[in-house]
Design a protein around this nucleic acid. Structure first.
Lengths: 161, 161
DNA sequence: CCTGGATTGTTCGATGTCGAACAATACGGC
DNA sequence: GCCGTATTGTTCGACATCGAACAATCCAGG
């Protein structure tokens, strides 16, 4: 009966907080919040590109895709992407172009500046990854990546079904 | 030069989106968004407890902790936790009690109902985890958990220093 | 003691994401 | 060709989280 507050040192508390019941989902969340926040803070002088680097990288690898497809790729909503693309277009990183054969949709493309910014930020991103996975072996990192891929796949397959 | 939009099927696009440049940080984010969203949607009829299950579990394991300590444990800000605890207290899951010896801080405790709700939701959470990690072996899940722990540790050590 | 700096909870305005709606456009079955 | 249904981008109001400020309280050094 823990009717009395425990007297952990702060360190011990943080390390063991929720440990007993901690699930993959929970640790996933914690790690993501901390990693994402740190990355954004480190690059707070580069506009909003760091936050949307994933999106920008996808646009570079798959230029001309419609917004709806991009939204699905980064697991955000169609409606959220509107504002995001407005911002990125406002910063001159991205362009909406008409798509021949479908007057509903826009194709999204990187500008030259956008392409350059993505290059720079991907380098930063790799440095950040190194910090994030410090103390893990190549094999462990690889295994974690494969596990994450599988989780992403599992959740995508479950979506809307 | 990919000046022409590619003609992936939607499946292929999703699977390979950003694959070339994908970092641990990015996949972490994607997996977390999808997993968290699915968990919340599945339990949309249980108030706001699902979203804050991690917090509630920590309160159960470490009753009587001050808000600031809890905020750090779940990687949210002190100011954010105020609203959250207001809500959880409003739903009757949590109580603020005065702390003897420090009139600034509150100790946070689960109510009986809160404790019951946490039990139920932790069971749901384990089921959700099973879905999330489907297709991964016990060893792979264990390795992923250890990797996540390490990443959390790394980011915490880097914080503010 | 007592005074200056830290810590705690709180408020408040700013920003990001969401879901539900909508108009414009595409498309399949007839 | 025509019509019902899907899809696309968009707007709008709701909500979650943030950072900066603040008052109350604690505490360490003189």
């Amino acid at each position: 009966m823990a009717q009395e507050a425990e007297d952990d040192g702060a360190q011990t508390f943080l390390l063991t907080a929720g440990e007993a019941e901690a699930t993959v989902g929970y640790k996933l969340r914690l790690a993501q919040i901390l990693a994402f926040r740190a990355f954004e803070e480190k690059l707070s002088d580069r506009g909003r590109a760091p936050r949307y680097l994933g999106l920008l990288a996808i646009i570079r690898n798959h230029p001309g895709q419609p917004q709806s497809r991009l939204a699905e790729a980064v697991a955000l909503r169609r409606s959220s992407l509107v504002t995001i693309l407005d911002i990125l277009a406002g910063e001159g990183l991205v362009e909406r172009r008409p798509v021949r054969g479908d007057r509903r949709s826009n194709g999204i493309w990187l500008t030259k500046m956008g392409s350059r910014v993505v290059d720079e930020l991907l380098a930063e991103s790799r440095r950040h990854d190194a910090m994030l996975t410090e103390g893990l072996s190549q094999e462990e990192v690889g295994a974690a990546l494969r596990a994450l891929d599988r989780m992403i796949l599992n959740m995508r397959n479950a979506e809307g079904g």
